[in-house]
């Protein structure tokens, strides 16, 4: 795992959120957009152009793969995507990196809040 953290640079927020959206199930384009909005508490609204630009790069990097065409909840046929095993490892490594960072931020915040004022 640590090997993956050091080997790959941090992911862009969109790529991370797409991986996170695909972590639990296979999804089609609009489903990914909705899931990202939900995960980010409506803070991150990804447009079509941004999404498919990221999907293209993620396919090139073997992070995700097509999961075939299936019927979506609206009854129409849509193309689905899923994580590859490499994508899962990257997502785990990135999540680990975020958790480490969150721990450091929390620790620093505590120290900052409890620090005695400096005398100039």
């Amino acid at each position: 795992m640590n090997n993956y953290i050091t080997k790959f640079p941090p992911l862009t927020p969109v790529v991370f959120h797409v991986l996170l959206a695909l972590a639990t199930s296979e999804r089609h384009g609009y489903d990914i957009i909705k899931q990202i909005a939900l995960d980010s508490n409506q803070k991150m609204i990804v447009g079509n152009g941004t999404l498919y630009g990221s999907i293209k790069r993620m396919l090139d990097d073997n992070l995700i793969e097509p999961a075939g065409e299936k019927m979506a909840e609206n009854g129409l046929i849509r193309k689905y995507y899923k994580l590859t095993s490499h994508g899962k490892k990257i997502l785990n490594a990135e999540t680990e990196r975020y958790l480490q960072l969150a721990f450091i931020i929390k620790e620093r915040q505590n120290r900052f809040n409890h620090a005695s004022p400096q005398i100039a």
């Binding site: 089609h28 384009g29 609009y30 957009i33 079509n48 152009g49 999404l51 498919y52 999907i55 293209k56 979506a72 609206n74 129409l76 849509r78 193309k79």
Partner: peptide, 18 residues
């Protein structure tokens, strides 16, 4: 890019629009 993603992008846009 168009050849690969045009149909999908149209589908996703239609879902978004509806």
């Amino acid at each position: 890019f168009q050849d690969t993603f045009q149909k999908e992008m149209l589908d996703t846009f239609e879902d978004y629009y509806q």
